[in-house]
């Protein structure tokens, strides 16, 4: 083959690739998210195995460290344990009574809200970019999840599903700079918008300067807009700044959930969120 011809083909491939890249930027996010998830999905099982193995290794190391530090406390704890065991026997009877009641409630819930059960998901991957905060979970459309479903951990807000595949999904965290959660302070009820900063913290925007905010005030989701349910714990205020010329306060928030410390999350389906909002409206 003519070397000039081969070189021109290679050059034209580069131009075509660059044109493809630029045109990808103009495609709507709904389509590109599907492309991303479709390409990344085959790696999800491998990601799951690697993350589970690394978590196991990490936990074993933690256990080893704790064994070394706990040897001195063991004797004291044994004495405490003896007393606590006596109490446990007494409380066991009460627990059994409550268990029977709980079973009845569970059966009732199962009958009435069978399609609205939350899904437990494992975190199998993290975002590769230092400036974006998202996670990959092992739950997809196969398990009944969909785009817009809310992700929580122990009633604290983690994020929202932004793209979904058959057996994996991408969750945009509340710490992502592109994430905006309508929220309010638990005590003062003042509303604002929680936005991520990509360094593991969030900021609360649009809080008027005259509002009195103290450190350690709690922030919850307000439910305005309908994307997130109300009253989910977001985080605590760690820093409040007021610059002279500014109309709004600069409020730094430490999220309730440190994503690096958890391995599982709970997916709340969008239908449940909508029905929850509707029932609240009816109630009011």
């Amino acid at each position: 083959m003519n070397p000039d011809f081969g070189r021109s083909i290679k050059s034209s491939i580069i131009y075509i690739l660059v044109i493809i890249s630029i045109s990808l930027l103009t495609i709507p996010a709904s389509i590109t998210n599907n492309i991303k998830v479709t390409i990344a999905s085959p790696l999800a099982p491998v990601q799951k195995i690697i993350s589970q193995t690394s978590d196991l290794f990490k936990n074993s190391l933690k256990k080893l460290a704790s064994i070394a530090s706990n040897t001195q406390k063991n004797e004291e704890m044994e004495e405490e344990l003896f007393l606590l065991k006596n109490k446990i026997v007494k409380q066991q009877d009460d627990i059994n009574t409550y268990k029977r009641k709980l079973e009845i409630v569970s059966i009732f819930k199962k009958d009435n809200y069978s399609d609205r059960k939350p899904i437990i998901a494992d975190i199998i991957g993290y975002d590769v970019s230092n400036f974006r905060k998202s996670i990959i979970i092992d739950v997809g459309t196969k398990q009944g999840a969909s785009v817009g479903d809310i992700i929580v951990f122990g009633n604290a807000l983690v994020g929202r599903i932004s793209a979904i595949g058959r057996s994996s999904g991408r969750v945009i965290l509340i710490t992502d700079p592109a994430s905006n959660v309508p929220s309010r302070f638990l005590q003062s009820r003042t509303q604002g918008m929680v936005q991520g900063t990509a360094d593991g913290t969030c900021i609360m925007k649009y809080v008027p300067r005259q509002t009195e905010i103290n450190e350690s005030d709690k922030v919850v989701s307000s439910g305005i807009g309908g994307a997130f349910p109300r009253s989910l714990y977001i985080g605590d205020v760690v820093e409040v700044k007021q610059k002279n010329a500014k109309l709004f306060k600069d409020i730094k928030i430490k999220p309730r959930i440190a994503i690096s410390k958890i391995e599982h999350v709970l997916v709340i389906k969008k239908q449940s969120v909508e029905s929850l909002s509707e029932s609240e409206v009816n109630y009011q």
Binding site: L25, I27, T32, N33, I35, K36, D127, S129, A178
Partner: peptide
């Protein structure tokens, strides 16, 4: 781009 949130194609360019 496939493993990151955000504009698809940005990292490629």
């Amino acid at each position: 781009d496939c493993f990151s949130e955000g504009l698809f194609g940005l990292n490629t360019v």
